[in-house]
Design a protein around this nucleic acid. Structure first.
Length: 438
DNA sequence: TCTGGGGTCCTAGGACCC
DNA sequence: TCTGGGGTCCTAGGACCC
């Protein structure tokens, strides 16, 4: 049996932990640049605010109902995620816990509760175990979680959704036998199935497959043909046959991406290069943190994708002559690409830098030792140390823009809005929560 | 005025081989 | 007039996830 532990409204719940007056109130958290609504408390959901909605379209509702709004605070959410996963990790061996995203983890319950127990005794133990996890996470971190339990991951996801939607379930829902599973599938819309996105649900609905149960019962060959091997696997999972493995096929990450939309459009290639330089440097920092090197840099730029006229987007990539983790090499390659792909006269709204062809730093170092530039290595170590100690962007490459080009608030004019962020309560000494006792 | 960011995997089709 | 068959590898683009 598989369990999935999923934090409820995770970002909104993080805000509530350190700001209890938000309990019972509608809360939303915005994406980078304060662009979209990416997390909503139940009260905000009840107001009809959809996931991913542009913030500006919902500002009037926000004002009318006194919704509390926050810019995203990833320092806080990342740290809270680590705490939640640590607590869950206390309950079972490491190899039976698979952290799937910032707010979700899969648990292999067979590690903890013997599959050979009689059905009823086993079910009872599983439920008690799940409730215990849920209560402990809540008490130790302040984050509410829901737990879904079923024979496959896709079914566990469905059980989790029911756990969230059914108040009487108390945050835990298990479906183990065929009858319970079919009933759960019957009340689950096709679009709510894990692995069925917008396009696939359109296809399915056009063929009268509207619930998860319909998909389970659809002809396999048809599913295989119309929805590829992925759709077929989803269908197998609905039938209780495990098909989705989470164990990564790869030893390490395949790509590193850093991208941002600009608050104000960039109109000159010169400024665009500053932005791309900054992004490439940020990507290289992540590369070094993961102890990887890259062999290929890819850059893309584009204008506003929502304005119909004059949409322009372009991209390019460069294969590096040697693998590297040096910001200097990577930025240089990225800027060369910008020269090729960026034309004057456009209003650029977004740029991204992707590092590809990643390998472990250690393994290449032995082969290509003479090619690793030790001077760069020393500079990178110094820069990383300075930025760690004195804050991000304490030092950066000059191609990222000089300080004379910053505006009155101290940020470059293209940098995104992040105006209404809460304090970084758990990671910055100066932002600790102050509690007054009277 | 205003619309996120960071990933993975699969497939079709082209290029190439003999 | 008429133009094979069998295979591999790579890449761009699409779809999906949170």
């Amino acid at each position: 049996m598989i369990a999935i532990v999923d934090c409820n409204n995770f970002f909104a719940s993080c805000e509530r932990v350190f700001n209890p007056r938000l309990n019972g109130k509608p809360v939303v958290v915005l994406s980078n640049n304060d662009g979209c609504i990416v997390a909503r408390s139940n009260e905000a959901k009840a107001l009809g605010i959809p996931m991913g909605a542009p913030y500006f379209q919902w500002k009037s509702v926000v004002l009318q109902y006194g919704v509390y709004v926050f810019s995203s605070n990833f320092a806080l959410y990342g740290d809270m995620s680590r705490r939640v996963m640590d607590v869950v990790g206390n309950f079972l061996p490491e190899e039976c816990l698979r952290v799937y995203s910032v707010d979700e983890a899969f648990l292999n319950l067979d590690c903890v509760i013997s599959p050979n127990l009689p059905q009823e005794a086993r079910q009872e133990k599983i439920l008690a175990f799940a409730h215990h996890i849920r209560q402990t996470v809540k008490q130790w971190t302040g984050i509410p979680v829901s737990i879904g339990i079923a024979p496959t991951k896709t079914l566990a996801k469905i059980a989790n959704r029911i756990a969230k939607k059914t108040p009487s379930a108390n945050g835990v829902f298990a479906c183990a036998n065929d009858h319970d599973i079919n009933e759960a599938l019957r009340v689950t819309g096709i679009g709510d199935v894990w692995g069925v996105g917008r396009r696939l649900s359109e296809t399915y609905r056009a063929h009268s497959i509207t619930t998860a149960l319909d998909l389970k019962n659809a002809p396999e060959e048809w599913v295989r043909k119309r929805a590829s091997i992925l759709g077929w696997r989803t269908q197998q999972e609905l039938k209780g046959i495990p098909c989705v493995r989470l164990e990564s096929l790869h030893e390490h990450q395949q790509s590193i991406l850093h991208s941002r939309s600009f608050r104000h459009p960039i109109t000159t290639v010169e400024v665009l290069q500053e932005a791309v330089s900054t992004f490439a440097e940020a990507a290289s920092e992540k590369l070094r943190r993961l102890a990887l090197v890259c062999g290929c840099v890819s850059v893309s730029v584009r204008t506003n994708r929502f304005s119909k006229n004059d949409y322009y987007s372009n991209g390019g990539e460069a294969i590096l002559p040697f693998v590297t983790d040096s910001a200097i090499d990577i930025v240089r390659a990225a800027l060369k690409i910008v020269e090729k792909i960026a034309l004057e006269g456009h209003e650029y709204k977004k740029a991204s830098v992707t590092l590809l062809d990643l390998s472990k730093r250690q393994t290449v170092q032995t082969d290509l030792f003479s090619q690793i530039d030790t001077q760069h290595e020393n500079i990178m170590q110094a820069m990383d140390a300075l930025n760690k100690r004195f804050g991000r962007d304490a030092v950066h490459l000059a191609s990222g823009g000089a300080h004379s080009k910053t505006n009155s608030t101290g940020s470059r004019s293209w940098q995104g809005a992040n105006d209404i962020r809460s304090q970084r309560y758990t990671t910055h000494w100066r932002e600790l929560r102050v509690v007054e006792a009277r």
